[in-house]
Simulated assay, not measured.
Amino acid sequence: MSVKLPKVAVLLAAYNGMQWIEEQLVSILGQTGVDVTVYISVDPSADGTESWCKQYAESFSSVVVLPSAGVFGGASRNFFRLVRDVDFQHCDFVAFADQDDIWRPDKLQRATQVLLDGSFDAYSSNVTAFWSDGRTHILNKAQPQVEWDFLFEAAGPGCTYVMTKELVEVIRSSMLTNWAQLQKVSLHDWYCYAFARSHGYRWCIDPVSSMEYRQHERNQVGANKGLSPLIARYKTIHDGWWFSQVQLIARLVGVDSDPFVKKWLKLHPLQLLGLSFSARSCRRRLRDKFFFFFICWATALIGKKVQ
């Protein structure tokens, strides 16, 4: 008797991905213990990614390339397009995939097992960052979740996300309602985590690394390791991007009227000083709690460019 395997729709956003996309697709199609269909949306590319993906899909019935939908200009809008346009009727779970990573063979099997036991609605995990010179580093995102972390950070790299079809359908419905504003969201994984947590869905962040997370000069968001990424992240905060995203996501997921959020949402200097004392409930990692406290004070005293 054949065993019914969990059906997973893998959403892959591609752009100028010829250097690595085949290796990634091989790792996705080689997943054990699940039935996978890969849906690819290609942002118009200069290296032949679009034509290559179409040829690849002709050889593999479990790979579907979506029709061209114009220029997205970033992975977030491309992923939102995938969530909007893919038909999830015949799948059980939905996963996100980047074009340049390497998945471990049991990545989806482990994730779906966690979700099938009914305790969680969504899953993410630690990853192993790796560089072309052979260096590797485990990125630990699995600290205990706190009350408001979802407004200030994602649940780890979006390429580890696996969600139940039911949750994704609810996310899609909300996305369609707020489609124009959603295009201003820079990180789809942050938004999805925030939506799920703010609406009472349960999220598992697995301490086990599920994939090799390739690091290169074109990473939109790479490994937060060392001093340089910390400086770059401070710059995005000082330039106003991070706080503007916090405000936008809070409004999109519908928590802007919560008494806690209302106390600081306008991000006036005194509000930021007050927010700093809630650092323990706003970030998961101890180091990030201290950084959050410092950023709130620095932004209040030095100034910021909040949209």
Rank of each mutant, 00 (worst) to 15 (best):
V3G: 01
A14P: 04
M18G: 11
G30D: 08
D47Y: 08
D47G: 04
G48F: 05
E50F: 13
K54Q: 15
Q55E: 15
A57P: 13
S59N: 06
S62M: 12
V71R: 15
R77D: 09
N78D: 11
V83Y: 05
D85T: 08
D87R: 07
D92W: 09
F96C: 04
A97M: 07
D98C: 06
Q99T: 01
D100A: 02
K107Q: 14
A111S: 14
L115R: 10
S124F: 07
S125V: 03
N126D: 13
T136E: 13
Q143A: 09
D149Y: 10
A154R: 01
A155K: 01
Y161N: 01
Y161I: 03
T164F: 00
R172Y: 00
W179T: 09
Q183A: 14
V185M: 11
V185L: 15
L187W: 09
W190M: 11
Y193P: 10
A194K: 11
G200H: 12
D206N: 12
M211P: 08
E212V: 13
Y213V: 05
R214G: 01
E217N: 04
N219T: 06
N224I: 08
H238P: 04
H238N: 07
G240H: 08
R251S: 06
V261Q: 01
K262S: 01
K263V: 02
L265T: 06
L267E: 03
H268K: 10
P269C: 14
G274Y: 03
G274P: 09
F277I: 15
A279D: 13
S281H: 10
C282F: 11
R284E: 06
L286Y: 12
I295D: 07
L301T: 09
K304H: 14
Q307P: 04
Q307H: 01
